[in-house]
């Protein structure tokens, strides 16, 4: 039972936006959870964050980098499989002053989903900070968390728009100004999370960050996504995907995330050489 792709927009950024029909998953989805995609029968099970789950459709951002995005570029009309929802969602409750941060494709999806969920709950004042490399990669406004947050801040790494730097710069300024921050949610590039984790630790701020790791089954069978958190083995797929950033060994997580880098290149090269071939 293939899953129809009902919308694909080139965000004129580094990413595509994709809508896929998956009513069963939408019905049970909670923000913070993830899904897995298989683009084709021979495909890999790829963990993906979800921006929106409504009207029977899942909305996701897909980075124009790996093989999946090339398949999208080349016009696939459906995914062979969408699996989920997987992992734990966030607790949808009043946190007080919440800051939601992100600086990469999946993180941007989570930023939107978390802002949307928490904005519906009284007692949350939300600041959303979204970082992009430069002005030209910023998503169109409707795909940002702008309308969902009480305060929305865009930063660019090269300073070409908004605040210069990444979300840590803004967060640090908020802390320096003595603003009260009760909770931080975030996701995106692991090195940035590593850096922000020391800021959060120093200021004793509770937080949950999406810990991206490679996965195979996504249900606790293979152990590929295992990490040691506070000295105990945890599986990102069933115990996560979000953890207190202060407790994760980020150096290990970052190295491990790159375990198949060479193979990814090989898969990409093979696809470019064979596309439109036997299939």
């Amino acid at each position: 039972m293939p899953f129809a792709i009902t919308k694909m927009i080139d965000l004129d950024s580094m990413d595509y936006l994709v809508d896929v029909e998956a009513p069963e998953i939408v019905e049970r989805f909670h923000p913070g959870q993830f899904v897995m995609l298989m683009t084709r029968k021979e495909g890999e099970r790829i963990p993906m964050s979800v921006m929106k789950a409504e009207n029977g459709k899942l909305t996701m951002f897909i980075r124009k980098l790996g093989k999946t995005s090339k398949e999208l570029r080349d016009g696939i009309t459906h995914f062979e499989n969408v699996i989920g929802p997987l992992g734990h969602g966030i607790k949808e409750k009043a946190y007080g002053n919440v800051v939601v941060v992100s600086d990469a494709v999946c993180g941007q999806a989570e930023n939107y989903a978390i802002c949307e969920a928490l904005s519906k709950i009284e007692g949350n004042t939300i600041t959303s900070i979204q970082t992009f490399p430069s002005e030209k990669e910023i998503y169109p406004e409707e795909y940002l968390a702008k309308a969902l947050a009480d305060q929305h801040i865009i930063t660019t790494e090269d300073g070409s728009f908004g605040e210069a730097g990444n979300y840590i710069t803004v967060l640090q300024k908020m802390i320096d100004r003595g603003e009260k921050i009760d909770f931080v949610f975030g996701g995106g590039k692991l090195p940035t999370i590593k850096a922000v984790s020391t800021v959060l630790a120093k200021n004793n701020i509770d937080n949950l960050f999406t810990t991206r790791q490679m996965m195979v089954d996504g249900s606790g069978m293979c152990g590929a996504c295992r990490l040691y958190i506070d000295g105990k083995m945890k599986l990102v797929c069933v115990d996560g995907p979000m953890f207190d950033s202060r407790k994760v060994d980020w150096d290990k997580a970052i190295k491990r995330y790159n375990m198949f880098k060479k193979k990814e290149k090989e898969a990409n090269d093979y696809y470019e050489a064979h596309k439109g071939g036997s299939k």
């Binding site: 683009t39 021979e42 495909g43 099970r45 093989k67 898969a267 090269d269 093979y270």
Partner: peptide, 12 residues
């Protein structure tokens, strides 16, 4: 995931 047929199959 038939990784022995990588890269024809996607899982490494």
């Amino acid at each position: 995931m038939k990784a022995y047929r990588f890269p024809e199959w996607d899982t490494p």
